[in-house]
Amino acid sequence: MGKLKLKEHVITREWCKGCGICVHFCPKQVLELDDQDKVFAARREDCICCELCELRCPDLAIEIETEQGSE
């Protein structure tokens, strides 16, 4: 059993209101808002899958999909 590995940031763009809570509180500064004020994973390789963005999102607009790591 390896560590949890990031599969994908599943973002429901139509639900995101661009409040920036996930962007600000991400411990690894993975997320950013695009020119339409919707969140996207700018540095996905830095994600540690803590899921704080998912837990704090008031709009249920972001989900961290993980998979089991190999080692």
Binding site: E14, W15, K17, C19, I21, C57, P58, D59, L60
Partner: peptide, 20 residues
């Protein structure tokens, strides 16, 4: 959805935590 609450409204987060 998207719900009627304003951007950044804490009530959405309360709902999120309750569902979890």
């Amino acid at each position: 959805f998207p719900h009627i609450w304003c951007p950044g409204c804490g009530h959405g987060t309360v709902m999120n935590s309750l569902l979890r």
